[in-house]
Design a binder for these strands. Structure first.
Lengths: 159, 159
DNA sequence: TGGCCGGGCGCAATATCATTGCACGTTCCT
DNA sequence: AGGAACGTGCAATGATATTGCGCCCGGCCA
Protein backbone atom coordinates (compact mmCIF):
# COMPACT_ATOMS: atom_id res chain seq x y z
CA UNK A 1 0.00 0.00 0.00
CA UNK A 2 1.85 3.00 -1.34
CA UNK A 3 1.60 6.38 0.24
CA UNK A 4 2.57 9.35 -1.87
CA UNK A 5 3.24 11.84 0.73
CA UNK A 6 4.22 10.18 3.94
CA UNK A 7 1.31 10.30 6.28
CA UNK A 8 2.65 11.36 9.64
CA UNK A 9 -0.69 10.53 11.20
CA UNK A 10 -1.67 13.92 12.41
CA UNK A 11 -4.04 13.81 15.33
CA UNK A 12 -6.28 16.58 16.52
CA UNK A 13 -3.63 17.99 18.85
CA UNK A 14 -1.18 18.21 15.96
CA UNK A 15 -3.72 20.04 13.89
CA UNK A 16 -4.40 22.38 16.74
CA UNK A 17 -0.69 23.10 17.03
CA UNK A 18 -0.46 23.76 13.31
CA UNK A 19 -3.40 26.13 13.40
CA UNK A 20 -1.89 28.09 16.26
CA UNK A 21 1.55 28.34 14.73
CA UNK A 22 0.10 29.27 11.38
CA UNK A 23 -1.69 32.15 13.06
CA UNK A 24 1.24 33.17 15.25
CA UNK A 25 4.54 31.59 14.40
CA UNK A 26 6.40 33.27 17.22
CA UNK A 27 4.22 32.09 20.02
CA UNK A 28 6.28 30.70 22.87
CA UNK A 29 6.16 27.00 23.40
CA UNK A 30 4.71 27.51 26.86
CA UNK A 31 1.82 29.53 25.48
CA UNK A 32 1.29 27.02 22.69
CA UNK A 33 1.25 24.17 25.18
CA UNK A 34 -1.31 25.99 27.27
CA UNK A 35 -3.58 26.48 24.25
CA UNK A 36 -3.48 22.86 23.17
CA UNK A 37 -3.80 21.56 26.72
CA UNK A 38 -0.45 19.93 26.99
CA UNK A 39 2.59 20.52 29.14
CA UNK A 40 5.54 22.20 27.50
CA UNK A 41 7.85 19.25 26.82
CA UNK A 42 5.49 17.00 24.84
CA UNK A 43 4.24 20.07 23.01
CA UNK A 44 7.74 20.96 21.95
CA UNK A 45 8.42 17.38 20.93
CA UNK A 46 5.36 17.45 18.70
CA UNK A 47 6.46 20.71 17.09
CA UNK A 48 9.91 19.26 16.41
CA UNK A 49 8.36 16.16 14.94
CA UNK A 50 6.17 18.24 12.65
CA UNK A 51 9.18 20.25 11.56
CA UNK A 52 11.26 17.18 10.86
CA UNK A 53 8.42 15.50 8.98
CA UNK A 54 8.25 18.55 6.72
CA UNK A 55 4.71 19.40 7.73
CA UNK A 56 6.04 22.68 9.06
CA UNK A 57 8.35 23.95 6.32
CA UNK A 58 9.53 27.03 8.14
CA UNK A 59 8.55 30.26 9.81
CA UNK A 60 8.45 33.68 8.22
CA UNK A 61 7.89 37.21 9.34
CA UNK A 62 5.13 38.79 7.31
CA UNK A 63 6.48 42.14 6.20
CA UNK A 64 4.53 45.04 4.76
CA UNK A 65 5.81 45.47 1.20
CA UNK A 66 4.88 49.15 1.12
CA UNK A 67 7.06 49.85 4.15
CA UNK A 68 10.02 48.66 2.16
CA UNK A 69 9.18 50.65 -0.91
CA UNK A 70 7.37 47.98 -2.91
CA UNK A 71 4.30 50.00 -3.76
CA UNK A 72 2.89 47.66 -6.37
CA UNK A 73 2.08 43.99 -6.33
CA UNK A 74 0.91 42.48 -9.54
CA UNK A 75 0.46 39.22 -11.33
CA UNK A 76 1.48 38.38 -14.87
CA UNK A 77 0.06 35.66 -17.05
CA UNK A 78 2.76 34.77 -19.53
CA UNK A 79 2.21 32.71 -22.66
CA UNK A 80 5.14 31.08 -24.39
CA UNK A 81 5.29 30.22 -28.05
CA UNK A 82 6.29 26.65 -27.42
CA UNK A 83 5.69 23.95 -24.88
CA UNK A 84 9.02 22.30 -25.41
CA UNK A 85 10.74 21.40 -22.18
CA UNK A 86 13.81 23.40 -23.05
CA UNK A 87 11.74 26.52 -23.62
CA UNK A 88 9.81 26.08 -20.39
CA UNK A 89 12.98 25.49 -18.43
CA UNK A 90 14.65 28.52 -19.96
CA UNK A 91 11.76 30.77 -19.03
CA UNK A 92 11.61 29.38 -15.54
CA UNK A 93 15.29 29.98 -15.02
CA UNK A 94 14.95 33.53 -16.22
CA UNK A 95 11.87 34.34 -14.17
CA UNK A 96 13.11 32.80 -10.97
CA UNK A 97 16.36 34.71 -11.23
CA UNK A 98 14.60 38.06 -10.90
CA UNK A 99 14.24 39.18 -7.33
CA UNK A 100 11.00 41.00 -8.18
CA UNK A 101 9.41 37.69 -9.11
CA UNK A 102 8.13 36.20 -5.86
CA UNK A 103 6.13 33.35 -7.29
CA UNK A 104 6.37 31.46 -10.53
CA UNK A 105 3.77 28.81 -11.26
CA UNK A 106 3.54 26.70 -14.38
CA UNK A 107 -0.09 26.46 -15.42
CA UNK A 108 -1.88 23.40 -16.73
CA UNK A 109 -2.53 23.53 -20.40
CA UNK A 110 1.02 24.14 -21.42
CA UNK A 111 3.09 27.14 -22.19
CA UNK A 112 1.62 29.40 -19.56
CA UNK A 113 3.05 30.76 -16.38
CA UNK A 114 1.50 32.80 -13.63
CA UNK A 115 3.89 35.10 -11.82
CA UNK A 116 3.50 37.29 -8.78
CA UNK A 117 5.77 40.30 -8.82
CA UNK A 118 6.49 43.40 -6.81
CA UNK A 119 7.56 46.77 -8.18
CA UNK A 120 8.77 50.02 -6.63
CA UNK A 121 6.49 52.19 -8.76
CA UNK A 122 4.63 52.18 -12.04
CA UNK A 123 7.78 52.91 -14.03
CA UNK A 124 9.41 49.91 -12.47
CA UNK A 125 6.31 47.85 -13.16
CA UNK A 126 6.37 48.89 -16.81
CA UNK A 127 10.02 48.00 -17.02
CA UNK A 128 9.35 44.56 -15.59
CA UNK A 129 6.48 44.01 -18.00
CA UNK A 130 8.68 45.05 -20.89
CA UNK A 131 11.42 42.74 -19.78
CA UNK A 132 8.90 39.92 -19.69
CA UNK A 133 7.46 40.76 -23.07
CA UNK A 134 10.90 40.91 -24.56
CA UNK A 135 12.13 37.68 -23.02
CA UNK A 136 12.94 34.79 -25.34
CA UNK A 137 9.96 32.73 -26.50
CA UNK A 138 7.46 34.98 -24.78
CA UNK A 139 4.45 35.44 -26.99
CA UNK A 140 2.02 37.22 -24.73
CA UNK A 141 1.98 38.92 -21.33
CA UNK A 142 -1.19 39.84 -19.52
CA UNK A 143 -0.63 41.86 -16.38
CA UNK A 144 -3.15 41.60 -13.61
CA UNK A 145 -2.69 44.52 -11.35
CA UNK A 146 -4.06 44.21 -7.87
CA UNK A 147 -6.06 47.21 -6.84
CA UNK A 148 -7.46 45.76 -3.67
CA UNK A 149 -6.82 42.60 -1.76
CA UNK A 150 -9.93 41.46 0.04
CA UNK A 151 -8.36 38.39 1.55
CA UNK A 152 -4.84 37.10 1.87
CA UNK A 153 -4.60 34.41 4.46
CA UNK A 154 -1.38 32.62 5.15
CA UNK A 155 -1.35 28.92 4.58
CA UNK A 156 -4.23 26.53 4.40
CA UNK A 157 -7.45 25.77 6.25
CA UNK A 158 -6.96 23.53 9.25
CA UNK A 159 -9.86 21.73 10.73
CA UNK B 1 1.08 66.90 7.32
CA UNK B 2 -0.47 63.52 6.77
CA UNK B 3 1.60 60.54 5.93
CA UNK B 4 -0.13 57.55 4.45
CA UNK B 5 2.29 54.96 5.47
CA UNK B 6 4.28 56.07 8.42
CA UNK B 7 7.92 56.13 7.43
CA UNK B 8 9.83 54.61 10.29
CA UNK B 9 13.11 55.47 8.65
CA UNK B 10 14.51 52.02 8.25
CA UNK B 11 18.26 51.87 8.41
CA UNK B 12 20.47 49.07 7.16
CA UNK B 13 20.35 47.23 10.46
CA UNK B 14 16.56 47.26 10.39
CA UNK B 15 16.59 45.88 6.87
CA UNK B 16 19.01 43.21 7.93
CA UNK B 17 16.72 42.25 10.78
CA UNK B 18 13.75 42.09 8.44
CA UNK B 19 15.62 39.90 6.00
CA UNK B 20 16.61 37.49 8.74
CA UNK B 21 13.15 37.26 10.25
CA UNK B 22 11.58 36.88 6.85
CA UNK B 23 13.83 33.90 6.24
CA UNK B 24 13.44 32.43 9.73
CA UNK B 25 10.73 33.94 11.84
CA UNK B 26 11.44 31.77 14.85
CA UNK B 27 15.06 32.68 15.24
CA UNK B 28 15.91 33.55 18.83
CA UNK B 29 16.66 37.13 19.58
CA UNK B 30 20.24 36.38 20.61
CA UNK B 31 20.90 34.61 17.33
CA UNK B 32 19.33 37.48 15.44
CA UNK B 33 21.41 39.96 17.40
CA UNK B 34 24.55 38.01 16.60
CA UNK B 35 23.77 38.06 12.88
CA UNK B 36 23.13 41.77 12.72
CA UNK B 37 26.08 42.61 14.98
CA UNK B 38 24.18 44.01 17.88
CA UNK B 39 23.74 42.96 21.47
CA UNK B 40 20.43 41.38 22.37
CA UNK B 41 18.64 44.28 24.05
CA UNK B 42 18.86 46.89 21.27
CA UNK B 43 18.10 44.16 18.76
CA UNK B 44 14.92 43.24 20.58
CA UNK B 45 13.96 46.88 20.87
CA UNK B 46 14.31 47.27 17.11
CA UNK B 47 12.17 44.22 16.46
CA UNK B 48 9.47 45.54 18.80
CA UNK B 49 9.59 48.90 17.07
CA UNK B 50 9.21 47.27 13.67
CA UNK B 51 6.26 45.26 14.94
CA UNK B 52 4.57 48.28 16.44
CA UNK B 53 5.15 50.34 13.32
CA UNK B 54 3.39 47.68 11.30
CA UNK B 55 6.44 46.88 9.21
CA UNK B 56 6.32 43.38 10.63
CA UNK B 57 2.68 42.36 10.39
CA UNK B 58 3.04 39.00 12.05
CA UNK B 59 4.72 35.64 11.96
CA UNK B 60 3.40 32.48 10.40
CA UNK B 61 4.40 28.87 10.22
CA UNK B 62 4.63 27.75 6.62
CA UNK B 63 2.72 24.49 6.44
CA UNK B 64 2.79 21.93 3.65
CA UNK B 65 -0.74 21.91 2.19
CA UNK B 66 -0.39 18.34 0.96
CA UNK B 67 0.36 17.11 4.47
CA UNK B 68 -3.03 18.37 5.53
CA UNK B 69 -4.86 16.88 2.61
CA UNK B 70 -4.95 19.89 0.31
CA UNK B 71 -3.64 18.18 -2.79
CA UNK B 72 -4.48 20.92 -5.24
CA UNK B 73 -3.69 24.60 -5.34
CA UNK B 74 -5.16 26.59 -8.14
CA UNK B 75 -5.99 30.10 -9.21
CA UNK B 76 -9.23 31.33 -10.68
CA UNK B 77 -9.73 34.40 -12.80
CA UNK B 78 -13.32 35.44 -12.33
CA UNK B 79 -15.13 37.94 -14.54
CA UNK B 80 -18.28 39.62 -13.30
CA UNK B 81 -21.04 40.95 -15.50
CA UNK B 82 -21.04 44.33 -13.85
CA UNK B 83 -18.59 46.71 -12.27
CA UNK B 84 -21.12 48.22 -9.94
CA UNK B 85 -19.84 48.56 -6.43
CA UNK B 86 -22.69 46.52 -5.01
CA UNK B 87 -21.88 43.63 -7.32
CA UNK B 88 -18.17 43.77 -6.55
CA UNK B 89 -18.85 43.88 -2.83
CA UNK B 90 -21.25 40.99 -3.02
CA UNK B 91 -18.77 38.82 -4.84
CA UNK B 92 -16.00 39.73 -2.44
CA UNK B 93 -18.14 38.84 0.54
CA UNK B 94 -18.99 35.53 -0.99
CA UNK B 95 -15.46 34.63 -2.02
CA UNK B 96 -13.84 35.65 1.24
CA UNK B 97 -16.34 33.61 3.19
CA UNK B 98 -15.11 30.35 1.66
CA UNK B 99 -12.31 28.78 3.62
CA UNK B 100 -10.85 27.29 0.43
CA UNK B 101 -10.27 30.78 -0.92
CA UNK B 102 -6.94 31.88 0.48
CA UNK B 103 -6.45 35.03 -1.56
CA UNK B 104 -8.90 37.31 -3.27
CA UNK B 105 -7.54 40.18 -5.33
CA UNK B 106 -9.53 42.69 -7.27
CA UNK B 107 -7.87 43.27 -10.61
CA UNK B 108 -7.47 46.58 -12.39
CA UNK B 109 -9.73 46.97 -15.31
CA UNK B 110 -12.91 46.30 -13.42
CA UNK B 111 -15.06 43.33 -12.82
CA UNK B 112 -12.27 40.86 -12.47
CA UNK B 113 -10.94 38.98 -9.49
CA UNK B 114 -8.00 36.69 -9.11
CA UNK B 115 -8.39 34.03 -6.45
CA UNK B 116 -6.02 31.48 -5.01
CA UNK B 117 -7.77 28.37 -3.78
CA UNK B 118 -6.96 24.99 -2.32
CA UNK B 119 -8.90 21.78 -2.88
CA UNK B 120 -8.77 18.29 -1.39
CA UNK B 121 -8.95 16.56 -4.77
CA UNK B 122 -10.11 17.12 -8.31
CA UNK B 123 -13.74 16.48 -7.40
CA UNK B 124 -13.50 19.15 -4.77
CA UNK B 125 -11.80 21.44 -7.26
CA UNK B 126 -14.60 20.91 -9.74
CA UNK B 127 -17.15 21.61 -7.09
CA UNK B 128 -15.43 24.86 -6.17
CA UNK B 129 -15.24 25.90 -9.80
CA UNK B 130 -18.93 25.14 -10.22
CA UNK B 131 -19.79 27.11 -7.15
CA UNK B 132 -17.85 30.03 -8.58
CA UNK B 133 -19.44 29.74 -11.99
CA UNK B 134 -22.87 29.61 -10.46
CA UNK B 135 -22.36 32.50 -8.11
CA UNK B 136 -24.44 35.63 -8.66
CA UNK B 137 -23.17 37.99 -11.36
CA UNK B 138 -20.35 35.68 -12.36
CA UNK B 139 -19.99 35.68 -16.10
CA UNK B 140 -16.79 33.76 -16.65
CA UNK B 141 -14.36 31.64 -14.66
CA UNK B 142 -10.94 30.68 -15.92
CA UNK B 143 -9.15 28.21 -13.71
CA UNK B 144 -5.38 28.25 -13.71
CA UNK B 145 -4.20 25.03 -12.24
CA UNK B 146 -0.69 24.97 -10.92
CA UNK B 147 1.22 21.96 -12.11
CA UNK B 148 4.58 23.05 -10.86
CA UNK B 149 5.77 25.90 -8.69
CA UNK B 150 9.24 26.97 -9.64
CA UNK B 151 9.48 29.71 -7.07
CA UNK B 152 7.42 30.75 -4.09
CA UNK B 153 9.32 33.05 -1.84
CA UNK B 154 7.77 34.53 1.24
CA UNK B 155 7.52 38.27 1.36
CA UNK B 156 9.50 40.82 -0.56
CA UNK B 157 13.07 41.52 -1.62
CA UNK B 158 15.09 43.28 1.02
CA UNK B 159 18.24 45.04 0.15
C1' DT C 1 -6.23 -13.04 32.85
C1' DG C 2 -1.65 -11.46 33.78
C1' DG C 3 2.52 -9.72 32.38
C1' DC C 4 5.36 -7.41 28.76
C1' DC C 5 6.34 -3.64 25.70
C1' DG C 6 6.12 0.82 23.32
C1' DG C 7 4.49 5.34 23.05
C1' DG C 8 3.40 9.45 25.01
C1' DC C 9 2.79 12.28 29.12
C1' DG C 10 4.15 15.21 33.18
C1' DC C 11 7.65 16.59 36.57
C1' DA C 12 11.88 18.47 37.78
C1' DA C 13 16.39 20.36 36.81
C1' DT C 14 19.45 23.08 34.02
C1' DA C 15 20.88 25.89 30.20
C1' DT C 16 19.29 29.64 27.31
C1' DC C 17 16.79 33.36 26.30
C1' DA C 18 13.88 37.66 26.93
C1' DT C 19 13.35 41.78 29.18
C1' DT C 20 14.25 45.70 32.06
C1' DG C 21 16.97 49.44 34.36
C1' DC C 22 20.88 52.05 34.00
C1' DA C 23 25.11 54.39 32.63
C1' DC C 24 28.01 55.70 28.65
C1' DG C 25 29.17 57.40 24.03
C1' DT C 26 27.89 59.93 19.84
C1' DT C 27 25.59 63.33 17.12
C1' DC C 28 23.61 67.41 16.27
C1' DC C 29 21.95 71.75 17.40
C1' DT C 30 22.48 75.97 19.90
C1' DA D 1 31.71 74.20 24.54
C1' DG D 2 27.18 72.59 26.58
C1' DG D 3 23.39 69.72 26.48
C1' DA D 4 19.49 67.14 24.74
C1' DA D 5 18.05 63.12 22.15
C1' DC D 6 19.02 58.80 20.67
C1' DG D 7 20.91 54.35 20.64
C1' DT D 8 24.15 51.22 22.49
C1' DG D 9 26.16 47.70 25.86
C1' DC D 10 26.32 45.70 30.51
C1' DA D 11 24.29 43.45 34.24
C1' DA D 12 20.49 41.51 36.77
C1' DT D 13 16.10 39.19 36.93
C1' DG D 14 12.31 36.57 35.40
C1' DA D 15 10.63 33.33 31.57
C1' DT D 16 11.33 29.97 28.43
C1' DA D 17 13.50 25.94 26.07
C1' DT D 18 15.36 21.61 26.55
C1' DT D 19 16.77 17.28 28.50
C1' DG D 20 16.47 13.12 31.52
C1' DC D 21 13.53 10.27 33.90
C1' DG D 22 9.75 7.80 35.98
C1' DC D 23 4.67 6.92 35.41
C1' DC D 24 0.47 5.63 33.07
C1' DC D 25 -2.32 3.65 29.50
C1' DG D 26 -3.36 0.53 25.66
C1' DG D 27 -2.12 -3.20 22.64
C1' DC D 28 -0.27 -7.83 22.40
C1' DC D 29 0.99 -12.36 23.47
C1' DA D 30 1.29 -16.39 26.34
Amino acid sequence: MPRDHEDPGLDSVDRHILAELQADGRMTNVELARRVNLSAPPCLRRVRRLEEAGVIRGYHADIDPVALGWEITFFALVGLESQKQAVLDAFESLATSWSEVRECHMIRGGGDFLLRLVARDTAHENELTSRLTGAPSVMRVQTLQTIRTAKDVAGVPIG
